[in-house]
Design a protein around this nucleic acid. Structure first.
Lengths: 228, 228
DNA sequence: TCAGTAGTGTAACAAATAATACACATTTAT
DNA sequence: ATAAATGTGTATTATTTGTTACACTACTGA
């Protein structure tokens, strides 16, 4: 217990480590270690525990039935994994979860989680809120995936990233991508050369400039036009 | 209250109408009526109440930023609407909700819902479980949308429908679609002529036969091959 | 019965993307 | 420093899908 720090955990952080300690004191749980590249969970396998990533980071990937990959998320510690699915009727992992580095994961059985809800109302509130946000995230992914053209997806991705940057620096016109081109192609569910071509086209049109992971927006309005 | 029957509601049904009556007795709520075609909620508008569809049915549609529609679900009474988003940080409707016929909708403010959680543990459990299922649903939609080809989507849709039919009649080889061709095209997020062409191709190949909404599967293995 | 509306089959052409291949740059590990 | 692995730019061809248009059928209400 001593080595666990929950302060940055979205469903346990605001309780404080002491209160979390009490909450876990009477509960059954285990901590497992995974090395880089290990599968933490497989798409379709049953999800009977609440997983809390204590240290390290993981990657979640959804495999389409035709074999094509689509990266969903990279998740750094401290965060719950698949919390939204723990109580579903068909409670299976919707994604493959792979360790990106050495990871420690706290695993709490379903029934214990229910007891913890009863013990601490704030934990319950956090859990519901976190799952609500999770549903929002999935819903947004649906919207993005529904954008048909690669240029459209790219424009949406850039504009969204710009908004995040601008809330810190309102007059910023560039940002650094969190993914390389290959990862971005997976994220969009398209081939890498097709993405490269679209980037080249946007550069030729003078809409953006791209150097490594740094994107400069030269013509914001042109980007917006690609959406509607 | 008298005219409300919750017995088929997934989050209130197993409480019994009497217990639900008690639960609502001290609570603030309202009941609104919508006529066919009325917008119940717009994509992006704030979601501050738990909506429970008491009678009638609604359609939920997600609008892509490029304007293309993608039908998500037709929802019959009695069911909660957008319950998964009520407690999200950015608690906005992810879809447009339109009445398909005259609807009565029970609206309970967020804070009242929290009080109801505290009053009745079973209601809370139901709510969490329902939202878990909701997340599963969204996750599945993501998987389907991630299938790239129309033939693949179609094969997936047919195989899934067949599985549902077969659990009733294991040797069945045909089923009736719940959507017409135009609706199916929207559901897949593709154009109607493109879908018609794919159907014609599958018929030419001798994989299926389609007459109105009745699908006969002639070659199950060929369908499966379209997925992987 | 008839007109109007919605749904379907089909075709020709344009646009977007996948598939594949290869050269070159950059990073990483030894 | 160097080899190996990873990431990027680009081109060609084949598929798939969108776009648009039109004829035809089935249903619906007056």
């Amino acid at each position: 217990m001593r080595e666990m720090d929950f302060s940055r955990c979205p469903i346990l952080g605001n309780l404080g480590n002491e209160r979390v300690g009490k909450l876990l004191a009477g509960a059954k749980f285990s901590v497992e270690t995974f090395e880089k590249g290990d599968m933490v969970a497989m798409q379709g396998s049953p999800c009977k525990h609440l997983y809390i990533l204590l240290s390290g980071s993981v990657k979640t990937e959804m495999t389409a039935e035709n074999g094509g990959l689509m990266t969903i998320e990279n998740i750094p510690a401290v965060r719950p994994l698949a919390s939204a699915f723990l109580f579903a009727e068909q409670n299976t992992f919707p994604v493959d979860v792979t360790a990106l580095e050495t990871c420690k994961i706290l695993m709490i059985p379903r029934d214990e989680v229910i007891k913890m809800f009863q013990k601490d109302g704030l934990f319950l509130e956090n859990y519901i809120k976190f799952n609500s946000n999770k549903a929002q995230f999935l819903s947004r992914r649906l919207q993005v995936l529904n954008i048909k053209t690669i240029k459209g997806k790219l424009a949406h991705y850039i504009l969204e990233s710009m908004d995040n940057v601008r809330s810190a620096d309102p007059k910023a016109a560039s940002f650094t991508m969190d993914k390389n081109q290959t990862e971005l192609a997976k994220f969009f569910g398209v081939t890498r050369p097709a993405l490269a071509r679209c980037i080249a086209e946007l550069e030729d049109e003078g809409t953006i400039e791209l150097e490594r992971k740094v994107v400069k927006v030269k013509n914001l309005q042109a980007l917006r036009n690609l959406l509607g």
